[in-house]
Design a protein around this nucleic acid. Structure first.
Length: 189
DNA sequence: GAGTTTGAAACT
DNA sequence: CAGTTTCAAACTC
């Protein structure tokens, strides 16, 4: 029932008009809804064509970004396609895209002092992190099982593609749920 | 609740 | 292509 609610992100954009990937909704291929607290929002069904044009434009200018970083990688490891570049968070805070999705950092990541404990303990143990790093130990497994979950790290690496790639139906449903988030009087342009 | 910090995305 | 700036979200107080 609330499943759709959970899948649909909400944003608080003020300057991007919800047409850039700063916007959680736009990034997730959702239209903004009443749950959003955005201002000057153009990411609505009313502007669907406009939104699609923007999405296409983004696609043209930055093809690799079209699918976000997430699903860019498929096959051997479905983790963050591009990886994170965390410097200070140690990949153990929600600033870190990998941590946020509960996936392991990989060699694709450019993070420093990685302490991401998901999967095999993060690339910090794989060599890209500094060996004599902040702790040297990734704080152990999140579940405290004492080892990598599943041994192969599989459970932590796999991400739900459904969440990353909402179906047309999902979008349509989302759109249908929007009453009228676009009040002309609310927008300055 | 407000302010600060952080990483990602956009722009030059 | 690389560096800088801007942005929204997460975090701390």
């Amino acid at each position: 029932m609330d499943e759709d609610k959970e899948q649909r992100p909400s944003c608080n954009c003020k300057k991007t008009t919800c047409l850039k990937r700063y916007c959680q909704c736009f990034q997730g291929h959702f239209f903004c809804s009443h749950a959003c607290n955005c201002k000057g929002c153009w990411n609505s069904e009313h502007r669907r064509t406009f939104v699609e044009e923007h999405a296409e434009l983004r696609l043209k200018t930055k093809p690799g970004a079209s699918q976000s970083k997430d699903s860019a990688l498929a096959g051997e490891q479905r983790v963050h396609g591009k990886g994170c570049t965390c410097n200070k968070s140690g990949c153990k805070k929600n600033y870190c895209e990998c941590f946020k999705k509960q996936v392991a950092c990989t060699t694709r990541c450019k993070c420093q002092g990685c302490e991401n404990s998901y999967g095999t303990g993060g690339k910090g143990l794989q060599g890209n992190g500094d060996p004599g790093g902040p702790s040297g130990q990734p704080d152990g497994a999140p579940d405290g099982s004492g080892g990598s979950p599943g041994g192969s790290g599989e459970s932590a690496v796999v991400i739900d593609e459904e969440l990353l790639r909402p179906t047309e139906a999902g979008v349509a449903e989302n759109v249908a749920a929007i009453d009228d988030p676009l009040d002309p009087s609310t927008y300055s342009w």
